[in-house]
Amino acid sequence: MNNKRVELDFHPELELLRNRTETLRGLPGFEEKLDDSGLYPLTPTGLDILQVNVGYMCNMTCKHCHVDAGPHRKEIMPRETLQHCLNAYDAGGFKTVDITGGAPEMNPDFRWFVDELHQRGAHIIVRSNLTILVTTPRYRELPAFFAERGVEVTCSLPFYNKITTDRQRGEGTYDRSVEALKALNALGYGKGNARLELNLVYNPAGAFLPLPQQELEADFKRQLLEKHDIVFNNLFTITNLPISRYLDYLLRSDNLDDYMVTLVNAYNPMAADRVMCRNTISVGWDGRVYDCDFNQMLLMPVDVTESSSDYTHIKDFDAEILLKRRIRTGQHCYGCTAGAGSSCGGSLA
């Protein structure tokens, strides 16, 4: 093991997840579990998704946010780095570009970037918090902008009622989300046109795992249709990973040990085999390349240290080198392998 990895592995949050209490110290290491499943070291299966985090600035400050995003965050991907991402897309054979944040719409070059990708014929996903789409007139133009370019809109809605949604994402979020969903529906989103896919993301508003995705999707569809005449394509259930703001919540509410035990007990080898880091790379606002958005927040760039140069920046993108890498893991990874598994595209098994 080289020095760089040892140094980076000791991100305070990873250290805390391993060692804070006797219970946490007693849990098996994620790598041991992978080894038991014949998956260690975890390696890529392809480069299908280029996920670009275009900045941590957001109009919201949700309690669970693993990015710790908010209006106070100034980290925004500059156009030069967005161009490096486009170059990587051109070179890499990616199927999808997944644009996330923060609120990605707040990057001043957001529309330019989407247009560039659209011209290249990329399958584009924008991860929207919904509320941004009903703020100022400039942002209210975006649903039509998306529709014209066939952008897939994947948006956060933690529940189909106001009380749960607002508790996690802030007062008034539910009503604004409903307004945004109606605007998207009015443009044809979520109504069966394959060009206009509208997906919702559910994540638990508390210290528990999601219900089965299929069951919850049926509930969401029925409730949103009955209450608001809203339709959508798919619901993706995402498990909260014990890092960043959600980790703070677990600590404050004295739920960390129980939550980690729940995740570990629910370890599912089939989900581990399909984790998204195996076919995705995540690019941070500063161009650094990570195995996933969570490793990005833990400042754990891709492990390409066996090659002679530093290929951890998107400007030096090299598909061959990235495909040979060893995916970096930690106790937080149990969040993606618990139960039916979790990824940006929902459950895995």
């Binding site: 529940f159 189909y160 749960t164 638990p204 528990f208 795992l209």
Partner: peptide, 10 residues
Amino acid sequence: TESSVKHGIS
């Protein structure tokens, strides 16, 4: 209790 919370029961 957990199951109820998961099902959105207040």
